[in-house]
């Protein structure tokens, strides 16, 4: 479990994090979204015991990262956004070093190194020097390092950065599987579509303040004041346009290749009524659907003008 309780972090007069509170239950994935400098990394560093909050407290598995940092570190795997490498060190030596640093000895250490190598697909790279690895491979190694001591909580700062599309899909599956294995995961990413598909909940932070904390579906529900609809018509579209123009709450009608896109300032009931009317007027509707809001849209909507 991860918990932030009213965490504030000041750097001089700048509020990097401003009374942020949220909780991530065990075995779930929490996506942390925000523009650069919003306070994501600072919050993550506070959880990882690398920063002290000016106010509030952060908890990992119920242990305070302020009061009890040693025990917090044993339960924590942290993958920072920047990967620092060692010269004259290969992947196997790197993992062995971090296994030793996390107190793993004997068979347990070798067993964990084998598991991480298989898990991150680095077995074939075991003897390769780290400095020669591609960005994607380094990300894998960094993830492997965070997992080497089998932590119950993972904090991943931009883990998908630099991964190819295939590796991203696999990473998504891996994160879901780790969560299903009981690990609690806090993940930040700029690739919001990735987060939408792997996170149970999403937190949106801007200028240090947490603006939203909900499921992706919940965020859509809360922020939705209108529907964007698409109608694909077999035949001419004039009748449909005429019908749509009769509705006061329909606006922004755009036509493209027998496809009409328009905005309805109403709820689902209004969406149904429009379809009924079109069908009654014998318009040949081939397709009728709501344009799904992406996480990017939600992010822009939530952050727009909320923090001044």
């Amino acid at each position: 479990m991860i918990e932030l309780q009213g965490v504030t972090r000041l750097f001089g007069s700048t509020r990097a994090v401003d009374h942020v509170s949220f909780m991530v239950p065990r075995g779930s994935v929490f996506g942390y979204i925000g523009p650069n400098g919003a306070g994501k990394t600072t919050s993550m560093r506070i959880l990882a015991t690398l920063e002290l909050p000016t106010e509030g407290d952060a908890f990992i598995e119920g242990l305070s990262s302020v009061n009890d940092p040693d025990r917090v570190r044993r339960r924590l795997g942290f993958m920072p956004d920047a990967f620092g490498s060692y010269s004259d060190t290969n992947c196997a030596e790197y993992l062995d070093f971090f296994a030793r640093s996390n107190g793993l000895v004997g068979r347990e250490r070798t067993r964990r190194i084998r598991w991480v190598m298989d898990f991150t697909g680095l077995r074939s790279m075991a003897e390769k020097p780290i400095t020669g690895l591609s960005k994607g491979m380094r990300q894998r190694l960094c993830l492997g390092r965070a997992l080497i001591h089998d932590p119950s909580v993972l904090i991943l700062d931009e883990p998908a950065a630099g991964l190819d599309p295939r590796a991203r899909i696999e990473l998504r599956q891996i994160i879901r599987s780790l969560a299903a294995d009981g690990k609690t995961i806090l993940i930040s990413s700029h690739i919001l579509s990735e987060l939408a598909e792997m996170c149970d909940r999403v937190g949106i932070i801007e200028q240090g303040r947490l603006l939203a904390n909900d499921t992706v579906a919940g965020l859509k529900g809360n922020s939705q004041t209108h529907l964007d609809l698409i109608v694909v018509i077999d035949g001419e579209t004039e009748t449909a346009k005429t019908i749509l123009s009769q509705w006061e709450d329909v606006s922004d009608v755009v036509e493209l290749n027998r496809t009409l896109q328009f905005r309805v300032a109403g709820d689902r009931q209004r969406q149904i009524e429009i379809l009924h009317r079109l069908c009654d007027a014998r318009v040949n509707v081939l397709e009728y659907r709501v344009v799904d809001e992406s996480l990017e849209d939600l992010f822009l909507k939530v952050t727009a003008g909320k923090v001044q």
Binding site: A92, R123, Q173, S177
Partner: peptide, 22 residues
């Protein structure tokens, strides 16, 4: 979902032997 043990990023290279450190 596949199991944690089944998953790997990029194939895993199962036929390749482990290094001595592992």
């Amino acid at each position: 979902l596949p199991t944690v043990a089944e998953l790997s990023l990029g194939g895993g290279g199962q036929a390749i032997p482990y290094p001595a450190l592992a």
